[in-house]
Amino acid sequence: MISETTNGAQPISQIINQSIEQKVNYLQELKQAVANHADQAIYALLDQKRYAAEIMHREEKANDTGVMTLVDDLTAQLSNYLSTKLINYLSQAYPFFYYEEYQLGHYRMYFGNWWDRRQFGELDVLNIRFVFDQSEYAKLAKSFELAQAGQRYNGQRIEELSKENDRLQALIDSADKRDAKKEELQAELKEASARNGLFESSKNRETREAIVAKLSELENQDEEARTAAGKIKANNQQVLELSKENTILSYERKSIVDTFGSFEDFELANRKLYASYLQSLVADGKQVEADD
């Protein structure tokens, strides 16, 4: 038999009423907050637990998933709506990040405004956090690490390529020398060959084989020299790419140091971004009240 009461305590209808009332209240509060562009209140409603913990410093509050899922279908619109003030704030706090809304409420981040700047991840507006592109972020972190040791990110690779180019260039430059040497060896070989035959001495055979080996080594070098110019060009292109990456990383490091002092302080600021931003909204609100 279906009972109208649970555990004999509350009638089901009352529970429904209460729940609906909560939802209506929630939506009304949200509606009001949106009408007033009270972004801080919107954030409080969208993630009550996080807001309580990070702003009110209270741990007890649990998220009421029943009401919060009510606006799940509006995340893109809410993100777009909340982005204005957030990006405005970020343009001061992180002056080196640039954003592009590639679809409603979704924001790509670029590091810097310089040539061939990197796409650095996305901005998660509803959660007030950066979603960094992990490989790009790792490069930057590594670059900071290396800079402390006085090294450049691609320094070693560039040095290897430069050395390789020097070697290849030397191969090209020594073509005439090799030709002369080959002629010399060929004459020697001819002489040694004249003495071969059935009764060739083992010493003569060794000499002959050594000459042949030397000649074949020179042939190999000639072969490599023929393709060296193309390789040098390709290596130079690679050096350019690597140098470009170094240049970009150096601009990124400079931006972070100029704004935050160090990479660690930058990371700390990222972790505290939610609280820092919402507190700035509180401060702004008070400022407005004080002005009134």
Binding site: W115, E241, S243, K244, S250
Partner: peptide, 10 residues
């Protein structure tokens, strides 16, 4: 070609 200028500005 622009990359080359960029690297020069480093």
């Amino acid at each position: 070609v622009i990359d080359k200028l960029f690297v020069q500005t480093a």
